[in-house]
Design a protein around this nucleic acid. Structure first.
Length: 104
DNA sequence: CTGGTGACGTCTT
DNA sequence: GAAGACGCCACCA
C-alpha cells in the first residue's frame, strides 16, 4: 500500500453516490494541487474487484476519462447513471453533480 | 540515477 | 471550439 494510493482511495470512498469529483479536485483536496495525474495513476492501480467507487472521479471539465478505452468508459457511465447522474453528451455538469469534502 | 509513461490540467495557437 | 505543447511527478524497467 503506497501513500498516494491510500490517500486517493480514502478520499474517493468518501464521495457520496450520485456525486462526482474531478482529478484535480481530488489532488487539491489531498493537499497536492496540480497533481491530477498522480490521482489517475492511483486509480489505475485499483484492482478490478475493488469496492472503491472510482467511477465518481472524472475530469475537471466534466467529461469522462477512458476516451481511449471504451470498455471502462461505458462501465463508468453506466454506474454513474445508475446512481442518478445525468449525462449531457459525453460529460457531466460539474456545477450540479460536483462534490467536495465537507459538502456532504 | 536515467528515461519513458500516463484514469490530467492549463495555456497558447 | 479544437488541437498541440508543456508542466506536473509517482511508478517501473
Amino acid at each position: 500500500m503506497k501513500g498516494w494510493n491510500r490517500l486517493v482511495w480514502g478520499l474517493v470512498e468518501q464521495i457520496p453516490a450520485g456525486r462526482v469529483m474531478g482529478y484535480g479536485h481530488v489532488a487539491a483536496a489531498l493537499g497536492h494541487p496540480g497533481r491530477a495525474r498522480q490521482v489517475g495513476w492511483a486509480l489505475a492501480a485499483l484492482p478490478r474487484d475493488t469496492t472503491v467507487p472510482w467511477q465518481r472521479v472524472i475530469r475537471s471539465s466534466g467529461s469522462l476519462a477512458f476516451q481511449g478505452t471504451p470498455e471502462r468508459a461505458m462501465l463508468q457511465r453506466a454506474r454513474l447513471q445508475a446512481e442518478g447522474v445525468e449525462f449531457q453528451g459525453d460529460g457531466v455538469d460539474m456545477a450540479r453533480y460536483g462534490w467536495l469534502p465537507g459538502d456532504g
